[in-house]
Design a protein around this nucleic acid. Sequence first.
DNA 1: CTAACTATATCACATTGTGATTTAAATTCC
DNA 2: GGAATTTAAATCACAATGTGATATAGTTAG
Lengths: 126, 126
Amino acid sequence: MRRFQRFSEQGARALRITPQQHQLLLGVAGFTGRGWATITELAEFLQGRHNAVVGLVQRAAQRGLVRKAQGERDRRFVKVRLTSKGHAILEKISRKNIAELRALQFEIMKTPQPPPRELPAAAGAE
Amino acid sequence: MRRFQRFSEQGARALRITPQQHQLLLGVAGFTGRGWATITELAEFLQGRHNAVVGLVQRAAQRGLVRKAQGERDRRFVKVRLTSKGHAILEKISRKNIAELRALQFEIMKTPQPPPRELPAAAGAE
DNA sequence: CTAACTATATCACATTGTGATTTAAATTCC
DNA sequence: GGAATTTAAATCACAATGTGATATAGTTAG
């Protein structure tokens, strides 16, 4: 269920990337089908305000995951692209996630039902 | 789809509550079926580390949404409960969300297909 | 009683998000 | 053309969130 989401976040952190930055890389790589995206498009993809995305992109650029360039026709736009480093990291995370998906699928085939959540020993009367 | 999630977050903000705090209230109210929850349980529910939850609960307590009490049997535990104010706010948000769900359902019945995402005018050659 | 364990707290710090305002470029309208 | 409007992005001060490391109690095991 949402256990994969959790794993996915951990996978990103294992490569010293925050979940948000991972999402950013995904958006830049795939959201537009163009290889680059504008701040506003990324804000739409990430369901956030544009100024939050400006900061996110700045930090990702500092880490060399992403680079910015001005639009040529319309110089108000910013084109955000992956760097080769960004590409590499995104691929590593994706590979890990695919592996985890396979493991989950395997597990589902094996186990009839995961045990229900364990209620902790009562902490005082209530 | 995930549009409801987005709405849900906005609904929380309209009542001056962050999405995280809304999730916290939900967890306290329902996760254990007991009316109260420990920090560790909330960390499980919120998929976060316990120290992140400590802070979240502290801020929510400052706002009077939640109150803390020591466990009696085992005084290491903390019981987090909703205050009446917390209850009231959680209900308001829930009512709003239910209304939105109905609206969405209605919309789905009406519209054959939402238009595909609009590609922005190209910002320079590429 | 000591050692190990458990639940929570605290700390310093980076990241993320928000509302308000600003800058710069492009477009519209006269 | 030039003023007004619109648009995309940046900036600011600030609050909220999350992280790793470490600390402090309380509890249990030996």
